[in-house]
Amino acid sequence: MIPPEIAITVRVNERDYVERVAPRLLLSDFLRHQLGLTGTHVGCEHGVCGACTVLLDGAAVRSCLLLAVQADGARITTVEGLARDGEPLHPVQEAFREMHGLQCGFCTPGVLLSAVELLRDTPHPDDATIRRGLAGNLCRCTGYQNIVRAVRRAAELLDRR
């Protein structure tokens, strides 16, 4: 027996979607496969790696630990929403580019969105705060060195805005 699909309305990157979803559809799969927003990556599906992190009503959350139906009525920002096509990079993105804060780029979207909330909460973080704040995002390429530097740089760039 297949449980019926449920209609949801969700605002993703400032665009409204009305969609039907199976109750068990994970938010990560909904974003990637139903909306085609493949910038949100899936690395573990048990909430540890943080690659699938998105902003849900402004708060960084694991999209693999949420059901799409739970996002009904919510506002979501994915990495594609940080800087729209044709716009310059978001300061956090720009800082990651300047500081070589990414290598393969797979964990990067989750790191960026975590950093956005971190810098909103703590606009001038010291390194310890940055490290604590990003401990929930695993990266296998960078050893975190340039990620920490990039977040520090992002704080400077955000200050200038």
């Binding site: 943080g50 992190t53 708060a59 960084a60 959350v61 694991r62 909330e117 704040g133």
Partner: peptide, 12 residues
Amino acid sequence: MPWVGHFQIRNR
């Protein structure tokens, strides 16, 4: 509280 998972976990 700060020891419960990571902040992204505590957000939810």
